[in-house]
Structures are given as C-alpha cells and as structure tokens.
Design a protein around this nucleic acid. Structure first.
Lengths: 429, 429
DNA sequence: CTGAAAGCGCTTACAG
DNA sequence: CTGAAAGCGCTTACAG
C-alpha cells in the first residue's frame, strides 16, 4: 500500500521533516506528501491514504471533508497532532505505555531507570513538554493561585506580585493576578475568573476591602488568605495581621523626642479596615506617652498623593498648624511633600513628614522619606505559605490560621527637631 | 438491596441534599447516609454499598480503601463529582444533551430559545460555571496571552500590566504575567511555562532584551509582539516601533532654547536595543540643530536610580560640567536629582534635568520632573491588538506587522534658563 | 435545531 | 514495575 501524508501548513515548508517525525521508517519509505488542501492531487491518486492531521478543529473538518470525498481512503491515526507533540507519540517512540511516560515525566520513583532513560531521550529529542490544561483536567488540580491586589499601579504592590510570583513558580504554581482598582464590578468578574480556572487558593491583598464579595470563594472551600481581615475565623481562611502599633509607636516617639507636640495624622480611606487600624495605632501611640490628642489633626485622605495634598491643605488652614505629619501610606506623604514644595514649606526644617509602607521609591524622594516599613516581600511570603499550608493540610484548621507581620520605623531625612533650625535662622538674622 | 451513600465533607451538613441531588427517586427512598470516613458504621452494616464519590484523588483512594475492606460492597458510580457541578449534571436537570448546554453557555445562536431558557435556569439555580481547563482542552484554544515585562517593580511597567489585563479580560482572555528581572534563567523558565500553558500569543515588553531566547516561541508559531525589535521581519511577529526622535528632539530643542550648550545624556544599559535607540535619537537631535556634541557628556547608566547617581557623579567630575542632563528613563533622572540634592546642586537653578517615560510618579518628584512621555496605556493597547489581530488572521502577514508609538515632551519644573538665575544671584552679591 | 458520540492530552486505580 | 483502560469536563462534526 502506498501512503499519502496529508499535513498542515507548519510542515509544508519541509514535508520530509514531517515524514521523518511521524512515520516509522517502513512507512516513511513509501510516503508521498500531499500538501494542505491539495484535494485534487489526492483525488487523482485514488489510493489508500494515511492521514496525519493536527488537533485544530478547523483542520479536522477538512480531513473529514476529504474522507467523505474518498471513501476508499484508509484512515489511520498516526498522530493526533503534528504541531503539538503528545504523550502518546512519546510512548510510541519510546516503546512504552503512556502511563509510563506520564510517570517518568512526573518523576515517580517507581519507574525503572532503564525505561525512564528511554523516555527522557525521546522527550528531549522532540522538545516535548506536557499540556498543562490536560494535566489539570486529568489530575483534578489546577496548580494555580489567585492574587488579588487593590491597585498594581500603587508602587506598594508590584513588589508583592513579584515575590509572590517568584515563590509560586518555585513551587510549581502559576498565578492569576488581578488588580481590582477599588471597583466592585472588577472584583466580581475577577472572582468568577478565578473560580472558572479552579484556583487552589487566593491571596487577597486589598487590605480589608470588599471582602463580602469573596463569599463565593469561601463557600466553595477555596483556601484564602487576607490581610487585616475581620469577621469570625473560618476553616481554610488565613489572616495576616499587621502589627501596626509597633512601627507607628516608634515613629510617634521619634517625633516626640524631636519635641514635636502638634503631630497630624492623615489617614487612608476609612472604609478600609487597614486604614482604620493605622489610625487607631496612631491614637494609641500618642496616648501611651501622654500626648494631648487634637482630633482636628486627624484628617482623612485616600492613600493617593492627591488625597494627601488635599488633607494637608486643610491642616494648613487650621489656626494652629501641625509641625509634623504622619501619613497612612507613602503615597500620601508624597502628596504632602508636594504641597509643601508648592507652599514653600521646607521639609524637614519647617515640617517633619513620615510615611508608611517603605515603598522602594521613598528613599529617592527629596528629602529621602522617613517611613514605617511593612515588608512587601515578607507579606508575599506569608501569604503564599498560608495558601500552601492550607492546600497541603488534609483536615483544615477549623479556626483558620493567623500570621503576624511586624512593622518598623525607618529613619531617613524628612524629620527634624521642632523649631530648632527655625530658631537658628532667626538668630542668624 | 439497601443503599449506603458515602459522601465527602461538603455534603455532610445536609446529607439529604446529596441524596436528592444524586440518586434517582427509587434509590433515594432506600438511601442511608454514611458520613465521610465513618468506616466503622459502614463496617457494622455488612451490606451492599452504593458509593457517591468526588473527583478528588484523595477521596477516591479512601473509597478504594473502603471497598477493599468490604468486598461485598457494590460499587456504582452515581456522579463523578459532588463538589463540582458539571455540564452533564446541568444537562440532566434541564433535560437536554450536554451539547445543548455547551451551545447555550457559549451563546450560539442556533439554540432554541425555549431550551436555552431551561438551561440558563438550571445554570443559575446551581451557580454553575464552566471549567476553563476542560474548555481549553476540548476546543484546542487556551485563550491565554503571555506578558513578559523586564521588571514589574520599575513603575513604568505596572501601568502596562494593568491596561493589558483590562483589555484582555474584556476580550475573554486571561494573561500570564512574568517579570524576568533581566535574568536569562527566569526568562527561559517563563517561556517554558508559557508553552506548557499553550498561550495563544506573547507580548514581550522587555525593550530589546534577550530576544534570542524567544526562538522557541517563534518556532512554534506563537504570535509575538515586541517593542523595538530588530532582526528580519517574520510572520506572526509584530513590532511596536517607538518614535523616540520626536520626543527627544522636543526636549533637546527645549533645552537649547533655554541656552543650554552642555547637555549630557545618561543612557540605559547599552545591551538594550531601546537604550541605544534613545541615545541615537539624542545624538541626532543635537546634530539637527548644529550643537557641538561632546562625547564625554554621554554616560552609560542602567535605568535605575543608583545607575543614574553614579553616571551623574562621573559627569560632575568632568572639567567642564554639563548644565543640563537628559536621561534615558525617569528612574535615572530620579537618581540624578537625588545626587544633586546630596551635592547641594539646585534643580532647576543650577541644573536642568529631563527624564523619559513619564511614569506616574514623575509629577510628584520635587521639583516635578519634565520628561518625555511614552504612553504606557497606548503601548499595552497596541500590544494586545497586535496579538489579537494575529490570532484572528487566517493567513499570517508574511512580514509581520509594524505599529508606531509616538513620544512627546512634557514640560514641568525641572528645567530652567541656563545661567539666568545664577547670573542674577551673582549680581545680587 | 438537537443529541449521541468521539475527541482533546493528560492521570491514575487496577490488574497483572 | 508496567500497561490497558477509564476518566477529567468540556467542544464539535456528524447525522438526524
């Protein structure tokens, strides 16, 4: 029997390659090449035809059309796919079963080294790599974690994304990242996408936003990890509690030591649980050292530079201005410093400013910003570990697990002794 | 025969629900519930057992253990999965075929509205959503695009990631994002991951780095889009060419108009094609206006603030210092301004600085940084569109497609007239 | 327009 | 230790 090989476009440029790749030598010797859609030639031949087809449904339909037109054609499945090598092809060439190929590739110790070697040889020769989707479907495990951040363009988050991704890849996980931008709709579609992809867990790095929307995930027993979550503990729901008080206390005491008595605090959006927690930590820190608390000095911002500017403008309008400002995040502090620049208020001489987060940028702000570090890398590590633990655990911890992340004050150059330099310059005059 | 239903945890709270969901009325009438792992009870019964099991391999093995221990147990597969609703279950309840469910969910117009309504009703009642992995495997399309950026922690990139993701979701695509951090190994594993996930296209936003590594993707006919690619055009490989000259020329002419004659340029890493292109645009811009070019004023940086500082330090050591510095990116400019701050060189009075990229931050730098805008949103949009076009195109454009992105100078407050203020202050003395 | 059935490329319990 | 075979949850060409 003569053989006609019917191929798809990728091999048209080098049909011999196709013959070599997909036929046994015995078949290859008899092979002729029929290019894609060259129906006429095939038609003229009127002889048994061996088809090589690819997975694409489009091509499949072509093949079937051709089959209808040459009922005489013998249809032999040589390979399911010419463009995509698969496990069956590897098995055929290595002269083992697909089960053995699968076991070899997954490095199961039970495979005889002799067979494993044969399999690896073929795998490398053909540059084969498994199809993740099929793997997921077969095993029932997606090996995907979701990562929800509130705003990737806020420089606090890319670092988290980066570290989270790095660890995930090390553990053979893929991540599906979503930036919700404080938008309910986006959050909803994001959750839907995560569920459709059957993620094995989701890290929710939104700092206490819209958590009600995540009910869908909880109900389906998807392991979750939050930052600053509230609400009753649940199995498979971990929480990373930030020890805000530690860093904020250090900052307040630093300002107090510099003889500041009117310290303002610009909060984040107070719908955010983390923002409330930071504000509360500030209030507690001032109380601890018996500092008189002027409620007017606590101003709401929104964690953006613009919000920082506006809040600071209001503080400037106060009859008694603050001499120092502590901000709920670095972006807010940047806004404050920008406004100070515009108003020709010299930082730190006339105003001390402290941020929160220690984004990478803060050391490049002028003057370099003193801030409170909340390690983004550590946060990402904790979050990943929390999810991994939950995935591995046979029986979930009924109360969830709590992790704690400390914060620390970082001294740079945006604070100074209250009145000190001003005093000196007065004397100089 | 009596029936024991062996269930997994999700149904333990409401076992009757399980019986109702998975057994025919006739079986249900005889069903007793045996909870998860309640081996003892089952053991005591010593009677035929009907198992309901779920897909999870872990549970499957438990089931099998139990079966081994009660050889008398009759094993009937009632449903493949109790935890995950599937298309078969929907079909059963809506009294249609799985084909019809599939067609309905994919909104194929051929489904009779009457049937479609029945299907949607069941889908909504049960909160069903399709399994993406199975969908991919069935259709042969992954609906995933890869996105490779060089460094997510560089504030230039998050904006790209954000916009790219947003458009992708709108078009029903998922993205797999990877930050290579200028690391060959990471790039290699990233490409491998993308191939394993059978991505339909990859946007390579590394600005001319390590493109040789992408050969694997090209060979497999994966549509690609580059920025500043070099090399011969190829089918399914698009290129976004940045019109650097336009923006850089505007910046140079602006400085020239401010009577700057010694304008330095701090480049990016010259292994990066984009960095070379920016440098060349600078040289051409100075030549165009007949400005004498001092090669000493072109200093290599690395697109980080640290690199900017170091390059600027070398410029300061020159016998004749520059009065203006144009930087290959904003991060470099930030480094320059930081160094100026340390060295007490006032920007813009003593030194004019211009960046490149127009990252969001640049307007919050003090003084606000004049820079050259290269729209990150537009770049992301072009890249996505390029991939989508290639995916849709039946026969690829043999020469690939080229897209062009313009750049524009953005004036802020980091530049000033050369010598002007210095002159005035001299007079004042 | 609809359903029965084959197929996607893997994994894995079972029986040697 | 290995292979034959069933299964994962979809899609879709084909035949009504």
């Amino acid at each position: 029997m003569q053989v006609i090989v019917y191929s798809h476009s990728a091999y048209l440029s080098d049909p011999q390659m196709l013959v070599k790749n997909f036929l046994t030598p015995a078949w290859a010797a008899r092979a002729q090449i029929a290019g894609l859609l060259q129906k006429n030639r095939l038609d003229a031949l009127k002889m048994p035809v061996l088809f090589v087809c690819e997975a694409s449904n489009r091509l499949l339909s072509r093949r079937q059309k051709i089959r209808r037109e040459w009922p005489s054609a013998e249809r032999t499945r040589v390979s399911a796919s010419a463009s995509t090598m698969n496990i069956r092809e590897i098995a055929r060439r290595a002269k083992v079963s697909t089960a053995t190929v699968s076991r070899t590739i997954n490095r199961m110790p039970t495979v005889h080294p002799h067979l494993a070697k044969r399999v690896w040889k073929v795998v490398e020769e053909l540059g084969y790599f498994p199809n993740t989707q099929a793997r997921m479907l077969g095993s029932g495990r997606s090996r995907i974690f979701g990562l929800i951040v509130s705003e990737i363009t806020n420089p606090f988050f890319p670092e988290i994304v980066h570290v989270f991704e790095e660890i995930a890849v090390q553990h053979g996980y893929e991540i599906l990242m979503t930036s919700t931008v404080h938008d309910r709709e986006r959050m909803k579609t994001a959750i839907r996408r995560l569920l459709e992809h059957r993620v094995e867990g989701v890290a929710v790095m939104t700092f206490g936003m819209e958590e009600a929307l995540l009910e869908d995930l909880k109900v389906r027993n998807v392991p979750l990890v939050f930052v600053d979550a509230v609400g009753p503990p649940r199995p498979r729901v971990s929480n990373i509690r930030i020890d805000y008080l530690r860093g904020i206390r250090q900052a307040v005491q630093h300002l107090a030591a510099l003889r500041h008595e009117r310290i303002a605090f610009i909060t984040g959006p107070l719908t955010l649980k983390s923002a409330v927690a930071r504000k509360d930590a500030f209030i507690e820190s001032t109380k601890e050292i018996g500092m008189a608390l002027d409620r007017q000095l606590i101003m709401e911002g929104d964690h953006t530079p613009k919000g920082g500017e506006q809040a600071f403008a209001k503080l400037l309008a106060l009859p008694l201005r603050p001499t120092a400002v502590l901000c709920s995040n670095d972006m807010t502090a940047i806004g404050v410093m920008h406004k100070s620049y515009v108003e020709k208020i010299a930082v730190p001489r006339d105003l001390s400013v402290i941020g929160f987060d220690n984004i990478r940028f803060s050391e490049y702000i002028l003057p370099p910003l003193s801030t409170i570090q909340m390690s983004q890398a550590e946060l990402a590590r904790l979050a990943f570990q929390a999810l991994l633990n939950d995935v591995k655990r046979e029986t979930p911890n009924p109360h969830g697990t709590e992790y704690i992340l400390k914060t620390n004050f970082v001294l740079r150059e945006s604070t100074a002794m209250n009145g000190h330099k001003a005093l000196r310059s007065t004397r100089a005059l």
